[in-house]
């Protein structure tokens, strides 16, 4: 009798589980999974502004969109710029996060919560709003940045108008805006390192630098892999900064993959073409993620 009862309970609970899951799963299926699959299908069609009004004009064109993408000079610019942003901005941002985490977490540091809160504040701000603010900070004639640099004898820099400097300028903004987030994750990682390790190293006569290299860095490796992974995924999606500050200019030097996708898809309504761009981005992110995971597995 007791087995029958527990059997019935399992059956009952399964039904209840699916009931609890159904709203979320339905939403994710309809508004996430189906769109992802549709985007893949779309990327093999010539879906454009005419198709918006009349779906019957859509034709399958195989890999034509992908072929056209790879022949488009601005796509290669966008890809190069995005990689520049990811490969320079990503590590820089992680380094700043780690540095500030070490400073805030140091034994000597006073007012830890205050510094932590201040460093974190830019994270909660709207990217659009701070991009607007930084556009003025970067103003060549009356921006604060050039004014402050003038005290160091540095001549005014046209931060967002010079094709060679616009992307570095955007990277600085992105690092400023985001470093507090990874800093918190690093602080959590640092607090998980047992004090005994440092005490033992101290007894063995290891100096602060050796302790950092031999204990802190290895113990932080899992945290770092995770942080680098989420940072890279996030940085590949560069959009609002160039949209607000440079519109992709000057000379397309800040055109990003997502900005290109937005312009093709939602400004010119070349939606099949834009879907192909989105999938190229997806594949690039996927490759990086798998690389990270393989790296992580090898280290374990």
């Amino acid at each position: 009798m007791s087995t029958e009862k527990s059997y019935r309970r399992i059956v009952d609970r399964t039904a209840a589980a699916w009931l609890f899951l159904s709203p979320s799963l339905a939403a994710i299926a309809v508004f996430f999974v189906v769109p992802v699959l549709s985007a893949l299908v779309m990327s093999f069609t010539d879906f454009d502004i005419y198709a918006l009004g009349d779906l019957s004009v859509v034709r399958f064109i195989g890999f034509e969109n992908y072929r056209r993408i790879f022949e488009l000079p601005i796509f290669w610019s966008a890809l190069r710029n995005t990689f520049y942003f990811v490969l320079v901005g990503g590590p820089l941002s992680v380094a700043v996060s780690l540095g500030t985490a070490l400073m805030v977490n140091a034994k000597l540091t006073r007012f830890k919560p205050l510094f932590r809160t201040i460093f974190f504040l830019p994270v909660v701000t709207s990217l659009v709003a701070v991009a607007v603010v930084w556009r003025y900070l970067y103003h060549p004639a009356h921006g604060i940045l050039n004014y402050l640099l003038s005290f160091a004898g540095i001549a005014p820099i046209d931060w967002l108008g010079n094709p060679a400097i616009a992307m570095p300028a955007i990277i600085v903004l992105a690092v400023w805006k985001g470093f507090g987030y990874n800093m918190l994750i690093f602080i959590a990682g640092l607090q998980n390192i047992p004090d005994e390790l440092y005490e033992a190293a101290h007894m063995d006569g290891a100096n602060a630098w050796r302790q950092f290299v031999d204990i802190t860095l290895p113990m932080l490796t899992p945290t770092s892999v995770f942080v680098v992974m989420i940072t890279i995924i996030g940085y590949f999606q560069l959009f609002a900064e160039p949209y607000v500050m440079t519109q992709g200019g000057p000379l397309n030097s800040t055109m990003s993959i997502v900005l290109l996708m937005y312009e093709q898809g939602f400004r010119w309504w070349n939606m099949g073409f834009a879907a192909a761009i989105a999938f190229v981005l997806f594949v690039v992110i996927l490759i990086f993620t798998l690389l990270q995971m393989a790296l992580q597995r090898r280290m374990q």
Binding site: P35, F236, A278
Partner: peptide, 12 residues
């Protein structure tokens, strides 16, 4: 990336 969903989601 969420951007992948945006084109079909808009049409939907």
């Amino acid at each position: 990336p969420a951007q992948v969903t945006m084109l079909p989601l808009f049409l939907l």
